[in-house]
Nucleic acid binder design. Sequence first.
DNA 1: GAATTAATGTACCTAGTGGTATATTAAACT
DNA 2: AGTTTAATATACCACTAGGTACATTAATTC
Lengths: 243, 243
Amino acid sequence: MGQDKKQNIEPGSERTVALDRQRRSGRRSHSDELDGEAIARATRHDILQAATHEFVKHGFEAASINKIAAQSQSSKRMLYYHFESKRGLYQAVLEAAYERVGRQASSRVEERTLSPMEALRQYAEEPFLNFLNNEDFVRLVMAENLSDAQAISESKLIRERNILNFSSLEKIWRRGCADGSMRDDIRIIDLYFAIVSISFHAVSNRATLKATLGVDMATAEEIEHRRKLVGDVACSYVARTSK
Amino acid sequence: MGQDKKQNIEPGSERTVALDRQRRSGRRSHSDELDGEAIARATRHDILQAATHEFVKHGFEAASINKIAAQSQSSKRMLYYHFESKRGLYQAVLEAAYERVGRQASSRVEERTLSPMEALRQYAEEPFLNFLNNEDFVRLVMAENLSDAQAISESKLIRERNILNFSSLEKIWRRGCADGSMRDDIRIIDLYFAIVSISFHAVSNRATLKATLGVDMATAEEIEHRRKLVGDVACSYVARTSK
DNA sequence: GAATTAATGTACCTAGTGGTATATTAAACT
DNA sequence: AGTTTAATATACCACTAGGTACATTAATTC
């Protein structure tokens, strides 16, 4: 008998019931309302979901293809059929995560109605909330950094997409300089860097912060507090000093 | 024949020549000047070094015991003899790393001679330089966060040691409040958090920052710039505003 | 209706995994 | 001198890794 464990496909379990319906004995039949493409898409999506879970938890190397296959409604064979290799699957997971957070990050700060300082505060809070709501993404980025961003470097899709829109931050800053509330002797990238660092760190290093300092960043109060902190830091850094 | 590859022990290679001298055909002899304890210590150190390298590169799960043994001057058997298990070895690596960075971080800011603001700037630059000089440590902490700080939570040694000395930061802040240069409506932990976030991020996310934004944080100019940034952010955040 | 093609299941492969059993050497102790 | 003990080498184990060969099913195309 084979070494790979038989997969425990229970019909009607958890996810994608519609998909299961198509799959009587693993093949699709004419009378069903979903066509082949839709099924293939559902299968891909299903595998991607299981893979995301596994890669987020263990990183690329330590993640197990066998476990991903077992946790999906599909099989290892299908995984390779759709994604070619472990690396290919990982790349797809990574790009999907960047897509997701990129879509949410389309910051629509009301630049006109707010004062520059208030607009900056609003801008600064966005990455914070975004990272908080996309912990999977944060963990994938951490894993990428541990492997020197190999996969990201190979992805055109990711390289060409900037998560935060610089131009909007720059506009706010220029307005602030014009009305005298902000310094003009800074680099915007430094401001951006400070905002992102604090926002990212609050999510990425939650575990060690709790283990070493005893601070739990996941409580509602602490989250509110950190959100305010990011804004405070950003605003005080760019504020024109009195003297 | 066994599955484990025969280890290629070349006498007189690279490291610990003194140790190699002891090890003719793998056993120590009476006429040598190092006693058993010293040899054991050297062996432990040698294994720890190879293990650090491997764990930093791959994280706990993906690191290979076989490769660690092969890269050390010792053997897998000795590894288990001295460290009991993969986990035990990892724990030892982690604690050694915390020890190392902790020793360097004994911040001796000249609290008396400097103004509070200047003392704060000097204090803020320390974790930055410390992380920069201990990239291994940073990567181990990242890996720990990815696995929810399992190992750190289990280590008394690490839990009981605070890397940065809070009290010194608090002293500076109190002096600043007293002489009117600093605000008193902040929490020191927020100040600490901002400093550490920016410092850590500059090292931990270097790879993705380069891949996505094209910024190389490793150049001398950029390092100098970031160092100044940490100080600027910390100082402007605590500075009493004029109005 | 025959041939083709996309999609799937089953069994299997080799290499490597963490960990151990057993034997052996030499120093330390009595 | 004989016994014990710390330190080391070799060979091995059961299991899992990523990946593939081959057969099979059903829909599509000619």
